[in-house]
């Protein structure tokens, strides 16, 4: 298997700035992220503290980010990263489509997901899942609810619907995908997951829907679930001044490392992480 120098997880300012710097340094890396780069950026109407661009809109900045990537021939992969696992002197990365290997990792996954739903933690692995493409085959001929935070979530709901008998899709944000015939759209927001030993139903604001499973597809997985063994405090990844985490070779940058959640801080950390990665790789190379 091809071993990359680095895999960047996240396409906000931290991940993109890391990608730009790794590209300048001639590193062999992969960039994973969302089609819209960053939902927070996309929805920012006006930004006044981005040096050199007073009053710029989030969408305009997003457009410039895209142009910047294109001008440097940096491809963005929209596969969802489900797991980053330290294997000793390298990392294995599982997406919904493939597995990859890299010598280093830069986590730029943004802020941790919103509050958990009541019942979510207790029923995790007992009908509650975070990866539809991983676990959908366990729900053949069953009834499943999919709660989707992103446009890709609707695609995953379609995949689940190929196997499940019936799927309820609850979009948290607007989406543009066409849903399969056996998917019923529910617009009332989810409130609680019910069940004693296994998931039995999903309660929304207006009704209780009996289901065998619930997939919660957020834009980002909590760092501790994404990277087993990573040190997290108050929901943020702990890093040193070089953006190095407690796992050697694994770096983190941007909102996932703490406050303030600001574009320039994130970009600066992304750059710091990329340069630390190059130093780390050079050191490893000279040791061999």
């Amino acid at each position: 298997m091809n071993r990359y120098d680095c895999i960047i997880v996240g396409s906000g300012p931290a991940g993109l700035e890391a990608a730009v710097n790794l590209s300048i340094r001639g590193k062999n890396f992969l960039l994973f992220g969302n089609e819209n780069l960053s939902i927070k950026l996309e929805t920012a109407p006006r930004i006044d503290n981005y040096l050199g661009f007073p009053g710029i809109s989030g969408r305009e900045l997003q457009r410039r980010y895209r142009e910047h990537l294109a001008s440097m021939n940096i491809p963005l992969r929209t596969e969802q990263v489900n797991l980053v696992y330290p294997m000793g002197d390298y990392f294995s990365v599982a997406t919904n489509k493939n597995t990859y290997q890299a010598s280093t990792i830069i986590l730029a996954t943004g802020t941790s997901p919103a509050k958990l739903l009541p019942g979510e933690e207790r029923l995790l692995g007992r009908g509650v899942g975070y990866c539809a493409t991983c676990d959908a085959p366990l729900y053949r001929n069953k009834t499943v609810a999919v709660v989707g935070w992103s446009n890709e979530a609707a695609l995953e709901a379609n995949f689940v619907a190929e196997l499940a008998k019936k799927v309820y899709y609850l979009p948290v944000r607007k989406f543009s995908q066409t849903l399969r015939d056996n998917i019923q759209l529910i617009t009332s927001p989810p409130v609680e997951i019910l069940g004693e030993h296994q998931v039995e139903a999903l309660r929304t604001k207006t009704e209780t829907i009996p289901v065998d499973g619930v997939f919660l597809l957020r834009d980002s997985i909590a760092p501790s679930a994404l990277v087993p063994g990573i040190q997290v405090e108050n929901g943020y990844i702990v890093v040193d001044a070089d953006m190095q985490t407690n796992l050697p070779g694994c770096f983190a940058a941007g909102d996932c490392t703490g406050k303030p959640h600001q574009l320039m801080r994130a970009a600066g950390q992304g750059q710091t992480a990329a340069l630390a990665v190059t130093r780390y790789l050079d050191r490893k190379a000279s040791e061999q």
Binding site: L83, Y85, A94, T95, N96, K97, N98, T99, C134
Partner: peptide, 10 residues
């Protein structure tokens, strides 16, 4: 299961 990527890593 063979199609489970995290299983392959684990």
């Amino acid at each position: 299961a063979p199609w489970c990527m995290p299983c392959r890593i684990f």
